[in-house]
Design a protein around this nucleic acid. Structure first.
Length: 166
DNA sequence: GCCAACGTTGGC
DNA sequence: GCCAACGTTGGC
């Protein structure tokens, strides 16, 4: 019997598609890119401490007319320092990290795995009492990286077809 | 574009 | 260490 810490975990990553969309991730070599720019301690701690290679991720498009989960991805690297925090030309430059010469933020590689046949919108998620525990649906939450309870992961995948990428 | 919710900063 | 001011997020 697998120990709990060996279990695959599930996550939800938000992104604003105008800045970086699921299709942008797919367009990367090997469907893989670094998930950088996380500048919130709780989100960082999830990424640094609680994820493992092989964990599964919903990619969620935020700040658009119909926010929605659009695809899945997989964590494909360990955490490493997010050096974009040290570069004053970067959007997510962090003066405090630069001052120390050491980034306090981390990133991981993420690889796109499958596209949802139809996006599962935020408003549709709210229609399912089975998803009451999903952090995304809690009032006032705005973490860009959130855990997804395994039961919710399975339930959401049951709402539409997942088409694996070649 | 508005604004509620929430996180961070910095003076004291 | 408190907390007011400020900045950001993200649904609507």
């Amino acid at each position: 019997m697998a120990k709990p810490q060996d279990a695959v975990r599930y996550w939800l990553f938000k992104t604003e598609p105008d800045a970086f969309s699921f299709d942008d991730l797919i367009a990367c070599p090997g469907h893989t890119d670094t998930w950088d720019g996380i500048r919130n301690y709780q989100a960082r701690n999830f990424m640094r401490d609680d994820m493992a290679v092989g964990d599964q991720v919903f990619i969620y498009h935020s700040r658009i007319k119909e926010p929605a989960i659009v695809g899945t991805a997989e964590i494909t690297s360990d955490a490493r320092p997010d050096e974009t925090a040290l570069d004053a030309d970067e959007k997510y430059f962090d003066p405090k990290s630069a001052e120390k010469g050491e980034s306090r933020w981390v990133l991981r590689d993420v690889t796109a795995r499958g596209r949802l046949a139809s996006p599962v919108t935020l408003s549709s998620l709210r229609n399912h009492p089975e998803l009451a525990e999903l952090p995304l649906l809690q009032k006032g939450q705005r973490l860009s990286i959130q855990p997804v309870p395994p039961v919710c992961w399975q339930y959401i995948l049951g709402l539409t077809e997942l088409r694996p990428l070649s």
